[in-house]
Design a protein around this nucleic acid. Structure first.
Lengths: 195, 195
DNA sequence: CGCCCAAGCTACGGTCATTAGCTTTAAAGC
DNA sequence: GCTTTAAAGCTAATGACCGTAGCTTGGGCG
């Protein structure tokens, strides 16, 4: 299927992600990927358009992986339980791969169908979990944003080492989850007519 | 005080921040800063140790500015009101300077007294605002982390264009603030003895 | 067996960070 | 005013890296 028993785009992305995981996005360089692949740098262009494209492929893979992770975490749970499970899964993913934070804020640019679909898939999981709360559409959007903001904010700050103090970070997260679940419950209950 | 009516470190940082504001952290390059300063690139090393140092100086300035912004927002307010004011101020700052997000997650590395002090100053503002809630020390740390996670998470996702849907983002933020204030109130009230 | 194309290569140009070492100029003291 | 001097700036050079152009090769298929 390929001369020289060679690389594939997937393999390149694999090596690239390894580099990011080891040293952060700043360490990602086509030269280093080529080196690890045992190939001259220009050869990579047969598998990847350019560095920006490689970055996008990384984002894509990470977002897809996160969607899968969250889906698994949510299945078999309901309501607040499910929300807490999502939060834990999201946090654990970034604990395991602290340098992937940036990939999860990637805003797909106009026309990037595949990345859009992937981020959409993440949102879908949250939407599904919120169904038992009985929000109308607009409210479920607001609720999803709140969950994402709180959980991603916490996990990314933790991943970047932003929590300097010695107090237990896990307990802080428990507090956050409780706030979130309680807040969602209230938001589902108190339906002021107009405002 | 300086030959050649010249640059200062502050002026260099100024130009650098302008570049970041215009095109994001990826646009920051010593070559471009030098160009704008009307100076050859190596001359910058008289004012800045290297690119990493310049980045740190940017982070430092941004964090200091945020501390000031939050302090102003908080003065004259109390309790939940003050928390909401902090949240709004944080969000507005990142709306005005969307590319400064990364500077606000900068974890000062061991021995960077000045940056540590600056991030500490931000935390101090939040601590001060939380005082009327009557948390013990550990709880105020957890509460501060929750606030930071939720607010920074929301503002940074908004800044990076992460909220794709058409629903009003301001309203989502109102929901978040309400959850947060309510959550803090509950956290202050329900003091389960041990767990 | 021979054709073809994808995967790989070398050579090259451009941008950038950083170092080394020289020149100049403004300020400070005489 | 004149000299000294240290900081501010410069040019030259190196090395990393991205990306393009164009050549080579080897494996699959007729």
């Amino acid at each position: 299927m390929s001369p020289r028993a060679g690389l594939t785009t997937d393999a390149v992305v694999e090596l690239a992600i390894a580099l990011v995981d080891e040293g952060g996005p700043g360490e990602l360089t086509l030269a280093k990927v080529a080196d690890r692949a045992g190939v001259a740098a220009p050869s990579l262009y047969k598998h990847v358009k350019n560095l920006a494209d490689l970055r996008r492929l990384i984002d894509l893979r990470v977002v897809k992986e996160m969607a899968e992770t969250l889906k698994n975490a949510a299945t078999g749970r309901e309501g607040g339980d499910a929300v807490a499970a999502l939060a834990d899964a999201y946090r654990h993913y970034l604990q395991a791969h602290p340098h992937r934070t940036h990939a999860l804020t990637a805003a797909p640019d106009q026309g990037d169908v595949e990345l859009s679909a992937a981020t959409h898939a993440v949102a879908e999981v949250v939407f599904a979990v919120l169904r038992p709360f009985g929000f109308d559409h607009a409210r479920s959007v607001h609720a999803t944003r709140c969950i994402r903001a709180a959980v991603h904010g916490f996990a990314s700050l933790e991943a970047s080492g932003g929590f300097g103090r010695p107090e237990d970070v896990g307990e802080s997260f428990e507090v956050l989850k409780k706030m979130l679940v309680q807040g969602l419950t209230d938001y589902a209950t108190n339906h002021p007519e107009k405002r």
